[in-house]
Design a protein around this nucleic acid. Structure first.
Length: 573
RNA sequence: UGGGAUGUAGUGUAAUGGUAACACUGCAGAUUCUGGUUCUGCCUUUGGGGGUUCAAAUCCCUCCAUCCCAGCCA
């Protein structure tokens, strides 16, 4: 399997990299003999309430990567304890996204709902031991009783309910005798704890939502703080790794794993989640964008979801490299979007097939080229990879180049086509602009050139140099395609920071559609999944949903680095 | 102002008592049949203040800043 192979290579390559704090903990544990059978067991535990996003890639790489590096295993566990929000669609997308990244959980696919019976039995035992009670406080009352950050809470009147009564009520909760909200099961810990999570946390609540896996079997569902640590213990997880916001839950985690009868309690470790500027990494907000049609779906190429970036043309290798460059630590920071783009470009540069596409066409006519003649030139598929071969491109008297590649009155530093200047048409001939045709409004409709027949293939015997090389397509041979120029979804580094509403920072130019771009014939063979570079324009991929042989659609994955436009900006153009 | 965490170039991450570094960004230049790639160079760093020590990013004290927590969400 390709992904697995990559993973192993990655492990080998990173041998020299300094250990991150999780690796140090694991190596210490291994050395000290604290790991049962010396097998590291991690888990990736998403809640199936949305699509996985770039932030999850970090967690996936940490959990699967650690297991791979230390010869252990990583479980996939869907944390499905809130049927009101969860859905089979999400479960399926999560699995396919992890596979796309090249990771595999083998037979270790688990669901928190697999443990509902065991969890229930443990809850009953807690009640019998006087460590849990059924509470009739309403949500509002419970909030009141909980106290505040600075004041302790107070005990619920139901806290000392007799064990038998608790047992009876809990059974009746399970049997569906009460409406939602009527009762909860709570752990009896400490209402005065400075840690709010320890102020008698809810263990079970009543919910009549249909569960994607257990259907209507249950009407009470266990809470995260109860479910997660016990699920970890059941599966023999050795290192339970989560994000920083769960630090405050660690005492609750330890409380649950120290319940009598739970063997080899795992430990929870927390790392800083991945934040990237110009991106939103909140499932709730992403869901809002989807539901309100600010984007076309979870897999809109502008979305920071795994399915979105895949459709856009990002490669799993690039993203794994990105995550590894970001590193693992406990500092809450924001990574530059430019680092992600760098990783994507670096990977795509090695693998993308080079093609010519003219997105904003300007006709050029080679006056001294024979009418009706067609020549085919060989174009290398990828100069970075000599093994990648060549393909043919048709050349004829009438061609298109980019409007941007011609200036009637060139600015300083411009070394593309302008009257009297000679440039190279990539793979083909040297041409010199001689005159322009204009319409009655003075707009240029075509540029007349002459070519040097001695420059065939792009070089001349006299060895003279030209400063500019343009890509082009033959007007008679070009195919027409739709090109979707994607850019950042948000125009602000931190969406919502300025006005308090992230919708205000949506980038109005995040998608610019070019209905009719001219592409060379070879591009007609491109399929979704093929990494392409339209020379001098950027990296592209055929759209997996909308592209058909009759109407090809290409997504811009990322632009090329562009020092010319930077220079233009500096000159105020 | 309760509790939990975190502060190292613009950004991210190393250095665990012994010369503060790597990558990205930015800037400058060379190379180039992509103003891409590649190569070279430059810029900029230990939150503040004390203390211990021959020596502190690292240990101690203190102050400051930022983040997380008051769901019957995860």
């Amino acid at each position: 399997m390709e992904g697995l192979k990559d993973g192993i290579m990655e492990t080998e390559n990173t041998e020299a990299r300094p250990l991150n704090f999780l690796e140090k903990i694991i190596e210490d544990d291994l050395k000290a003999g604290r790991v049962p059978d010396n097998v590291i067991v991690t888990r990736f535990p998403p809640e199936p309430n949305g699509y996985l996003h770039i932030g999850h890639i970090k967690s996936i790489c940490i959990n699967f990567g650690l297991a791979q590096k230390y010869g252990g295993r990583c479980h996939l566990r869907l944390d499905d304890t809130n049927p009101a929000k969860e859905d089979m669609e999400y479960i399926n997308s999560i699995k396919s996204d992890i596979h796309w990244l090249g990771f595999d959980w083998g037979n270790y696919e688990y669901y928190a709902s697999d443990y509902y019976d065991q969890l229930f039995d443990i809850a009953v035992r807690l009640i019998k031991e006087g460590k849990a009670y059924v509470d009739s406080l309403t949500p509002e009352e419970m909030k009141e009783y909980r106290g505040t950050l600075t004041e302790p809470g107070k005990n619920s009147p139901d806290r000392d309910r007799p064990i038998e009564e608790n047992l009876d009520l809990f059974m009746r909760m399970k049997n569906g005798e009460f409406p939602e909200g009527k009762y909860t099961l709570r752990a009896k810990i400490d209402m005065a704890s400075p840690n709010i999570n320890m102020r008698d946390p809810a263990l079970y609540r009543i919910k009549y939502a249909e569960h994607p896996r257990t259907g209507k079997k249950w009407c009470i569902y266990p809470m995260y703080d109860f479910t997660h640590p016990i699920s970890d213990a059941i599966e023999g997880i050795t290192h339970s790794i989560c994000t920083l916001e769960f630090e405050d839950h660690r005492p609750a985690y330890d409380w649950a794993t120290s319940i009598d009868g739970i063997e080899h309690a795992p430990h929870q470790y927390e790392f800083a989640r991945l934040n990237i500027n110009y991106c939103l990494m909140s499932k709730r907000k992403l869901l809002y964008l989807v539901q309100n049609n600010f984007v076309t779906g979870w897999d809109d190429p502008r979305m920071p979801t795994i399915s979105g970036i895949r459709r856009r043309g990002y490669s799993p290798e690039a993203m794994k490299d990105f995550v590894s460059r970001v590193g693992v630590a406990k500092v809450e920071g924001v990574v530059d979007y430019s680092l992600m783009e760098f990783c994507v470009r670096e990977d795509l540069n090695k693998r993308a097939k080079r093609l010519m596409a003219v997105l904003d066409p300007l006709k050029i006519i080679i006056d001294n080229y024979p009418e009706g003649q067609v020549e085919y030139f060989e174009a290398e598929n990828n100069p970075e990879d000599p093994e990648s071969g060549k393909h043919k491109v048709a050349f004829s008297k009438e061609l298109y180049i980019e409007k941007e590649d011609f200036m009637e009155n060139p600015v300083k530093g411009y070394h593309r086509l302008y009257p009297g200047n000679e440039i190279r048409l990539k793979h083909a001939y040297y041409v010199t602009a001689v005159s322009v045709d204009k319409d009655e409004d003075g707009r240029i409709t075509a540029v007349h050139c002459t070519y040097d027949p001695e420059s065939k293939g792009g070089t001349t015997a006299d060895g003279r140099k030209v400063k500019g090389t343009s890509h082009w397509v033959s007007a008679d041979h070009a195919l027409v395609a739709e090109v979707r120029q994607y850019d950042k979804l948000f125009k602000a580094e931190c969406p919502g920071q300025a006005t308090g509403n992230y919708l205000d920072d949506l980038n109005p130019d995040s998608l610019v559609v070019i209905e009719k771009a001219y592409i060379e014939e070879e591009a007609g063979n491109a399929k979704p999944g093929d990494y392409l570079q339209f020379i001098r324009n950027g990296y592209y991929m055929a759209d997996s949903k909308d592209s058909t042989p009759e109407h090809m659609v290409f997504n811009r994955t990322v632009t090329l680095k562009d020092s010319w436009s930077k220079m233009k900006a500096k000159m105020g153009l």
